[in-house]
Simulated scan of single mutants.
Amino acid sequence: MWYLPESERVKFKEPFGALFPDIDSALKYLGDAPIYAVGDVVTRNLRRKGIVPQLSVIDGNTMREPCKCTPLLPVKRIEVKNPAGFITEELICALRTGVDNSPALVHVEGEEDLAVIPLVMMLSEKSAVLYGQPCEGVVVRIVDSASKKRAEELFSLFVQV
């Protein structure tokens, strides 16, 4: 498993993609790209628009508080444990299984926030990863070679434990 040291966390505060104020503007931006969602609220908002993402990664919380809007999706569900501040092998395997068997939902016991990093690294180019930026909106990252390189740079800040 990999741990993100406290000293490196500031590098994860900036959006890892284009920031939009709401789901509607985010959807206009991404066009017909396959959609992957990280977060309960983003997944719920996509579902309200009639969209079932290829993969949704949720943890039942929003801003570390229980989320009363966790969506129910009629898709394969994968349960995984991943503590806050970590990326576990189990999470990476669950993401890969979900990507390979989409549509799917990965339900994380712990925290799902950092799943964006390995997800971008494993997705094919032109896929879109959406996640919430607390109190600001929705981030859309279209996967391309630059985003994969940046994800690898961010992942290199983790310490294997």
Score class of each variant (00 low, 15 high):
S7H: 08
S7Y: 10
E8P: 06
R9T: 13
R9Q: 15
R9E: 07
R9S: 04
V10G: 03
F12W: 03
F12C: 02
F12M: 08
K13T: 07
E14F: 05
P15M: 06
F16I: 00
F16W: 06
F16L: 14
A18E: 15
A18R: 13
L19V: 01
L19H: 00
F20Y: 13
F20G: 03
F20S: 07
P21E: 13
P21H: 05
P21C: 03
P21T: 06
D24C: 01
D24W: 03
S25A: 12
A26Y: 04
A26R: 06
A26F: 11
L27S: 12
L27A: 13
K28H: 10
Y29S: 15
Y29R: 06
L30F: 02
G31Y: 09
D32L: 13
D32P: 01
A33T: 13
P34R: 12
I35D: 02
Y36W: 08
Y36V: 10
Y36L: 13
V38C: 01
G39S: 08
G39C: 10
D40E: 12
V41S: 01
V42L: 07
T43P: 09
T43D: 10
T43F: 11
R44Y: 14
L46F: 09
L46Y: 06
R47D: 04
R47F: 09
R48P: 00
R48C: 06
R48E: 15
K49W: 05
K49M: 06
I51D: 13
I51E: 12
I51R: 11
Q54S: 15
L55P: 01
S56F: 04
S56G: 15
V57T: 08
V57R: 07
V57L: 08
D59G: 06
G60S: 11
N61S: 09
T62W: 09
T62K: 03
T62G: 08
T62M: 10
R64A: 11
R64L: 07
E65N: 08
E65P: 03
E65Y: 12
C67T: 15
